[in-house]
Design a binder for these strands. Structure first.
Length: 260
DNA sequence: ATGGTAGGGCGCCTA
């Protein structure tokens, strides 16, 4: 089973690139971030026509996440627990059933947090504390599960072409990276890093200042696997070529294969 | 220190 994550930066502006990629890569499950659409505006027919079930958690203008799956999506929940007042659409979960086992899939769009310090950074750290609580619950279930999406976290210096340029940025500040580690070290495996050690693998290149042409990228999209999912990991990758296509997102898809 | 680009949606916010 191939599970992918893709920050598409506007699903309506990206529907051609998205459907082309779905047809070429045929992932079984996809979590999308930054759909920038309300649920009623999501172009679900174009995706359903390719054989996918679609569940969305959108909002007007910004944010918004979705899950696509060839097999039915069960027990869908929307929103990250822990703050009833939080109206930002950044978290969606569903269960997909493979031939061997079921997999709990969490799709997330973690807050950017800039400028730091400030209220947006406080929101990022508070959101990550809530995410850690949900992550603990996933581990307690002792079942295959994963959390995939745009984490807006550069975990290590090797995950940036120019780490020094990010030193004061909310994506790379020590408190941000520590919060990410506090989640990962609960017992999750980074599906990409586990199979691909070394520097130079990125998932985001800014639209500005020729970042793509200079390969000035960062690795901020991640798939974290529960131990029961990590046991089934057979491959992982980054669809880097998508960044060179027509009207690309500033992110590219990441994926992993699980024997589930 | 600034500005460079893009999407949503129409003045300006978010990234």
């Amino acid at each position: 089973m191939r599970i992918a994550s893709y920050n598409i930066n506007g699903v309506k502006a990206r529907i051609t690139a998205l459907t082309r990629w779905l047809e070429a890569q045929t992932p079984d499950v996809v979590v999308l971030q930054e759909i920038k659409s309300v649920d009623e505006g999501f172009p679900r027919e174009a995706i359903e026509d390719l054989g996918y079930n679609v569940e969305t958690h959108g909002q007007k203008g910004f944010n918004g996440v979705a899950i696509l799956s060839r097999s039915p999506l069960e027990d869908v929940t929307r929103g990250l627990p822990g703050d009833e007042a939080d109206e930002q659409a950044r978290w969606i979960e569903a269960t997909v059933v493979g031939p061997k086992d079921a997999l709990r899939v969490c799709g997330l769009y973690l807050p950017n947090g800039n400028p730091a310090p400030g209220p947006k950074y406080d929101y990022k750290l508070a959101w990550m504390a809530r995410m850690r609580t949900r992550a603990q619950e996933l581990l307690a279930a002792e079942e295959p599960a994963l959390m995939a999406g745009d984490y807006n976290i550069i975990p290590q210096a090797e995950d940036a072409a120019k780490p020094e340029a990010w030193a004061e940025d909310a994506l790379f500040l020590p408190d941000s990276r520590a919060a990410f580690r506090r989640i990962q070290t609960l017992g999750f495996t980074d599906a990409y890093r586990a199979l691909h050690p070394g520097a130079g693998a990125y998932t985001f290149w800014d639209y500005q200042a020729g970042a793509w042409q200079k390969n000035n990228g960062i690795r901020i999209d991640h798939i974290l696997l529960s131990p029961q999912a990590a046991d089934r990991l057979t491959a992982s990758g980054i669809d880097r070529d998508e960044r060179a296509g027509d009207k690309p997102s500033d992110h590219v898809p990441i994926w992993c294969d699980l024997d589930i």
